[in-house]
């Protein structure tokens, strides 16, 4: 069984935001209100000559124990057998409980106005109803044998995508070695996005 996961190396992310642009075009996100499926916050850490700039790509962590799924009252949020957490936009009533439950700030609103603006912005919009939205690991691309748009476009190869159930997969090996760690594992969400820390080397 495939179990998709992503590893993000914070040492090699240069903050070019190409992943955000690729994702926005691929998934038609409401960029006009600064809402993205993947986002790269930046922060200056340290003082004087010890200062460093950190880029921290973030997205839905496709948790194995997703709190967004358990709180969803309509069943719009569901999990595929390959581990991807999806939203059925027709079934989502937009109560925002999922966004409240998500510890990774991965979800955003799509309103009636966004649908209207989206049609003007993108020409033809795949989405027809408002509701909550988030990263789908580009499930439609995976189903065609392609990689997620953000992974494919990443210039520093900071994002790597693979199958945790395949021991030969480099992503699975990085996770198994412990070099890549999930965010906030104490919450019990069992995320499938892992990070290689930059602090030990630079901080």
């Amino acid at each position: 069984m495939t179990h998709y996961a992503m590893v993000i190396d914070l040492n090699t992310c240069v903050g070019c935001n190409a992943c955000m642009a690729a994702c926005a075009m691929e998934n038609q996100t409401p960029v006009w209100k600064n809402k993205w499926r993947t986002y790269v916050p930046e922060k200056e850490i340290g003082t004087s000559e010890m200062v460093m700039r950190r880029f921290f790509p973030r997205l839905c962590n496709h948790c194995d124990n997703p709190p967004c799924l358990t709180v969803c009252p309509t069943g719009a949020t569901y999990k595929r057998p390959d581990g991807i957490v999806m939203i059925d936009p027709d079934r989502c009533m937009g109560c925002r409980a999922c966004a409240m439950a998500c510890p990774y700030d991965a979800r955003y609103e799509v309103t009636y106005d966004d649908i209207k603006t989206g049609k003007e912005f993108y020409g033809e919009l795949q989405r027809t109803s408002p509701g909550m939205d988030k990263c789908s690991f580009c499930a439609h691309r995976l189903d065609k044998g392609m990689k997620p748009a953000c992974v494919e476009t990443c210039v520093g190869s900071a994002r790597q995508f693979g199958d945790l159930d395949n021991p030969a997969d480099p992503v699975a090996q990085m996770v198994m070695s412990g070099v890549a760690q999930p965010l906030m594992p104490h919450l019990g969400t069992r995320p499938n996005v892992y990070y290689i820390d930059d602090m030990k080397r630079k901080g």
């Binding site: 709180v71 009252p73 079934r91 937009g94 509701g131 909550m132």
Partner: peptide, 23 residues
């Protein structure tokens, strides 16, 4: 955000397919 989808939660059967959702 999507008012018509409320129909899914008005259906009493929702308690069988989403028993973990407090809403």
């Amino acid at each position: 955000l999507h008012h018509t989808a409320v129909i899914y939660v008005l259906n009493p059967l929702v308690l069988f397919y989403q028993p973990h959702a407090w809403i």
